[in-house]
Design a protein around this nucleic acid. Structure first.
Length: 1061
RNA sequence: GGGCCCGUAGCUCAGCCCGGUAGAGCGCCCGGCUGAUAACCGGGUGGUCGGGGGUUCAAAUCCCCCCGGGCCCA
């Protein structure tokens, strides 16, 4: 091997640029893809398509794709034929709105009249396409290896056609119907809004009125209802009550009111009524069926139809004891719960508000009035006049407004196309049961949604979406749902320029029933429809069936927890409608990317992290490893500092490879000639240990990855390379690789290191593809004549036969012992450079004893001790001395003026007292005429060790360091001091590690003696071919030093290198 | 208003499922090392485990309520 890394200044940014260019120039993605295609085992991954409303991506989207990419890379290296087609979600109202803004139009009418639908749709498409390109660039920046040349795009004709197929399936299964539905409506934009679009609320002031509905057949008795939407009163059909709440009949003045007991006090106080009398308490269920008369009956035409339904019904889901009167006025045409219940009861669903927010003619006296304001005022006025108003107030509350024009919305019954998924409830639940969720709680959340599933309103009165393939006969009303373009042509339609509006609207069919003209309904599909069909539509099904048949089901999907209600749900819904089963097998749910304060990241909040800024400040691999280290299902708190710290880790990881590069390069190590098998006999214990560790690391890594727990794998990667390799193994082998000779021992270290680093590098490749590629190219590829990219290699499996659990356990124990030994040295002020004669490990634990004995070389080396011995507890008992200190709070009050004598006693007989307290539990004596009896409470007892012993505690053991310095230790220490200084000078003089030197040394005699005595050691450490005990010549690089107060003059001079480079 | 998730050292988080002396990394302070050195090693500092109640011999961990943040719904 050649040293390709150690002379290079590590620059992760430059490295990534280099790799990016390398990938492009050598078409690495294509090679990776081709290799994957040859693999026998399929893996169908389905990309959740990001919405193309912007040309850049959110940090959360970046995290999402990094998780996906990491898993895809892993599975490719594991030998799967991986399906990695990315997708883009391109239809829908958010894009329409952007285009409206761009074109300066305000509503649907203007789109049709001023712009024209054709141009509008073209603009939407161009916009989506541009954003798609922009987002693709960002994903590529992150190193995401997906099939970017062949994404699936929801606006393409083939995709739309696949969508038609499902709508036809729903029709064939009797699930697709047109029905009256209550939807959110913007009266200014004159369109329905999807549930997910109802996201903006304003605090608005509204009337808060209490209205009396007279009970039929009970003179002077009324139900008391409360509402903040008087405009819905003309459409009132019934009143809802809670069967388990307690209600009361109350006398107020000359009349009787019925309301919930829990609300009585609040309502009366709001109305300013002090005198009232509770006549009776009874459960709400007794109200069931009670009929009433609507106060506006005579004024509203529609009430003629509704009057027969005026009675109290039980609706626990709609009634709360925290608000109102416990009796809720219900207008099924203007409320969703009202609607559901109304339908159940067979009540006609009547909405009295038109597209423009004005009351319809059927609202009689109120016809033409705007629902909020005008209508409200007139209705309140009439109620007051009719004596039906119990109290009138105002209320400020959150009210939904249109997210585009901020106009208050209303709920309104309209005719919509729905898919009756509620009929599929049991089938959905059953299909979802078999899906594996990570984490598990997401499944519970999902099942909860399924149990409460409601029908799906798919129609939208918009332009940019999948047109509903429903044609209706103008003459006889016969309906045809078209499943494909081919079918369209068979029915006499002409293939339109494209399947979007307005072109598809021009296609007319001949009615097979009456021969009349059939026209398409003008609606498009809810945008959730699009992504929900991606599992088969992205494969071209049903025009081509083989792909889906071969790949199904989707092996796993990965999205944020907002998609539990979103994409995960819409996929399942489409899967069950179309195929009767869940389209996916496993779901990995990740968290949300939040800002540094844990708040949502939003442009409007000013805490939005721009993707380009992120990538320019933090290298991609760092972003990747940092994000993937976050517990995947938990929210990710963005942190510049966190990433900078992760970045520092990269420096250390680089240093590890740089270290390997330097020494293996120096010695021209050839990994092809050696293997850990061939060197089995000469591996040292630390080699066997790190080989075991890399394999147990891999076992952990694979377990995590196969369970999609990528954060566990990411953390294990970091821990292993930093803690086991960098902090420990490299320390242990340093001396072994410094030597010049081609020793088998050095070879064993290189072979081991190569084996370990290579395994780690491959495991890290899915996470940090740039770094690993670079290191592979520079350090590994040539040496092992490997393929064009690290990403073309196979992922190593854990080799269980090389895992030695007990050795790993012993090493852990030894690490702790070494740590304690160092702490003990520190306490004694002993530099690590100074050798000590003896380290005594005191333990009763058999495994610790065995560990220290088995690995005594390591303990000796790391603690810098000439000898390491294990001893039992008795060792400490022998040398330990107990001392006591007076506890003044106890002795003072007890002995009062004699107390000072006791203190003196304790000082003089400290050990004697301590021994007595330890053995007998008390001490008795007469001292200076005072009878003293001491118990443990009187003193603080502590152990002391002789000065020559420094002690530190570990878990289950104690380490004692013999700090007495003998002649041998002294000389060795001095020799080391000299070595250190010569090394320092070598560096100052700019010498290469391989250079040999001549050295001169003169000065203090003790130092000279030490060097003389340890001549071999000093000369080999410093690569000095000769050492002269003389003043250095003028040509030498010379410096004067002080070592422990002794002066020496050292000179060095380069004589040449021998080790190959 | 409902469902689910999160709240542990100055920071980022592990530990919680399955109760038994509160942990890691980073930071900060002190010391060491100097042939990976924009590294490395040792010591120290630092916690009402969001708050309150309950179960238990024992609660960060199990149960209930509340507070703060997040997602989804109403």
């Amino acid at each position: 091997m050649r040293d390709t890394l150690s002379r290079e200044r590590y620059d992760q940014f430059a490295l990534e640029e280099w790799v990016k260019r390398y990938w492009e120039e050598h078409s690495i993605y294509r090679l990776v893809k081709e290799k994957s295609l040859r693999n026998p085992r399929k893996l169908y991954f389905l990309d959740g398509p990001p919405y193309t409303s912007a040309p850049t991506i959110h940090v959360g989207t970046a995290w999402n794709k990094v998780i996906k990419d990491t898993l895809l890379r892993y599975y490719r290296m594991m030998g799967f034929n991986v399906w990695d087609k990315p997708g883009f979600d391109t239809h829908g109202l958010p894009i329409e709105v952007k285009i409206e803004q761009k074109l300066g139009v305000k509503n649907k009418g203007e789109i049709v009249e001023k712009v024209g639908v054709a141009r509008f749709v073209e603009e939407c498409k161009r916009f989506a396409e541009e954003n798609m390109r922009g987002q693709t660039e960002k994903f590529k920046e992150l190193g995401v290896f997906m099939d970017w040349d062949n994404p699936y795009v929801t606006f393409r004709d083939e995709y739309i056609e696949s969508g038609w197929w499902l709508i036809k399936r729903a029709w064939e299964r009797g699930l697709l119907e047109q029905d009256v539905y209550v939807v959110h409506w913007c009266p200014r934009c004159q369109t329905t809004l999807a549930d997910y679009e109802v996201s903006e609320y304003r605090v608005l002031e509204d009337p808060s009125i209490y209205v009396k509905f007279p009970v039929k057949g009970r003179e002077g008795e009324s139900l008391l209802i409360w509402t903040t939407t008087p405009w819905t009163l003309p459409a009132n059909a019934f009143v809802m009550a809670h069967p388990d709440l307690t209600y009361v009949r109350v006398r107020v003045g000359g009349e009787v009111l019925i309301l919930a007991k829990a609300r009585l006090e609040a309502v009366m106080s709001e109305a300013g009524v002090r005198d009232y009398e509770v006549l009776e308490e009874f459960p709400g269920r007794e109200l069931e069926g009670l009929e009433y008369r609507h106060p506006l009956e005579g004024l509203v035409d529609a009430q003629r139809i509704l009057a027969p339904y005026h009675r109290v019904v039980m609706a626990p889901e709609a009634v709360t004891p925290h608000e109102g009167t416990g009796l809720v006025h219900s207008a099924p045409g203007h409320g969703d719960v009202d609607f559901e219940i109304g339908k159940r009861l067979g009540v006609p669903i009547i909405s009295l508000v038109g597209d423009d927010g004005r009351m319809l003619p059927e609202a009689g006296r109120y016809a033409g009035l705007y629902f909020r304001g005008e209508a409200n005022e007139r209705i309140i006025e009439d109620l007051r006049r009719l004596g039906a108003l119990f109290h009138e107030g105002r209320v400020k509350h959150r009210y939904p407004v249109c997210w585009r024009c901020k106009t208050p919305l209303l709920l309104r019954a309209t005719k919509q196309w729905v898919i009756r998924v509620s009929k599929l409830r049991d089938e959905l639940i059953k299909s979802a049961e078999s899906v594996e969720w990570i984490p598990l709680w997401a499944k519970e959340r999902f099942m909860h949604l399924l149990r409460n599933i409601r029908d799906w309103v798919i129609s939208r009165q918009r332009f940019w979406g999948v047109p509903l393939p429903i044609w209706v006969c103008e003459s006889c009303g016969y309906k045809v749902v078209v499943g494909s373009v081919e079918e369209l042509e068979k029915l006499g339609g002409k293939r339109p320029k494209e399947l979007h509006r307005p072109w598809v609207d021009e296609v007319t069919l001949r009615c097979p029933k009456c021969g009349g003209v059939m026209r398409r309904v003008p609606d498009v599909a809810d945008v959730w429809f699009d992504s929900g069909i991606s599992f088969y539509a992205s494969l071209g099904y049903p025009r081509r069936r083989d792909l889906w048949e071969r790949l199904k089901p989707v092996d796993y999907i990965v999205e944020g927890h907002d998609q539990i209600r979103g994409w995960f749900f819409s996929l399942l819904r489409s899967g069950v409608i179309g195929f009767g089963e869940s389209p996916y097998r496993r779901v990995l749910v990740h968290g949300f990317a939040l800002d540094e304060q844990g708040r949502e990241m939003h442009k409007s909040l000013g805490n939005y992290i721009d993707f380009d800024e992120l990538i320019s400040r933090i290298p991609r691999d760092v972003v990747r490893l940092w994000t993937t280290s976050n517990t995947v299902w938990e929210d990710l708190r963005f942190s510049w500092r966190g990433m900078e710290m992760m970045w520092k880790d990269f420096t250390v990881i680089w240093n590890v490879f740089s270290f390997a590069s330097m020494y293996m390069g120096l010695d021209g190590f050839d990994p092809k000639k050696h293997s850990i098998e061939s060197l089995r006999g000469i591996l040292r214990v630390e080699d066997r240990w790190v080989i075991s560790r890399v394999n147990s690391f891999l076992r952990e890594y694979h377990k995590a990855m196969s369970g999609l727990l990528i954060h566990e794998a990411a953390r294990a990667l970091r821990r292993f390379i930093l803690e086991d390799v960098s902090h420990w193994y490299l320390r242990l082998i340093r001396r072994r690789v410094w030597t010049d000779e081609e020793t088998p021992d050095k070879l064993a270290a290189y072979t081991t290191l190569y084996y370990v680093l290579r395994r780690w590098l491959l495991a890290a490749a899915p996470f940090i593809p740039f770094f690993t590629e670079y290191v592979y190219q520079k350090l590994f590829r040539e040496a092992e004549e490997g393929p064009e990219s690290v990403h073309l290699l196979d992922m190593p499996e854990a080799d269980f036969s090389l895992i030695d659990e007990s050795l790993e356990d012993e090493m852990e124990r030894v690490k702790a012992v070494v740590e304690a030994a160092r702490a003990a040295r520190m306490k004694a002020g002993l530099k690590l450079r100074r050798p000590v004669s003896r380290v005594i490990v005191v333990t009763e634990d058999e495994r610790t004893r065995k560990a220290v004995e088995d690995l005594s070389d390591i303990v000796r080396g790391e603690a810098n001790a000439r000898e390491v011995v294990v001893a039992g507890r008795e060792f400490l008992e022998e040398v330990r001395v107990y001392k006591v200190e007076p506890n003044y709070r106890e002795i003072g009050p007890e002995y009062k003026r004699d107390a000072p004598k006791v203190y003196r006693l304790l000082e003089e007989r400290s050990e004697e007292v301590a021994r007595a307290l330890v053995s007998k539990g008390f001490y008795e004596a007469e001292y200076e005429g005072v009878k003293v009896r001491l118990e443990p409470r009187h003193v603080r007892l502590h152990a002391e060790y002789p000065e020559w012993l420094s002690v530190a505690e570990g878990e289950g053991f104690t380490v004692a360091v013999d700090t007495r310095v003998g002649r041998e230790e002294l000389l060795e220490g001095l020799a080391r001091e000299v070595v250190r200084r010569i090394q320092f000078m070598r560096k100052e003089a700019g010498l290469d590690v391989t250079d040999y030197i001549e050295a001169w040394i003169s000065g203090d005699s003790e130092i000279l003696e030490a060097v003389r005595e340890k001549l071999d050691y000093v000369s080999s450490e410093t690569r000095a071919s000769t050492i002269r005990f003389d003043k250095p010549p003028a040509t030498a690089y010379t410096r004067e030093w002080e070592v422990d107060g002794k002066r020496v003059l050292i000179g060095i001079k380069r004589v040449g290198a021998t080790r190959s480079t």
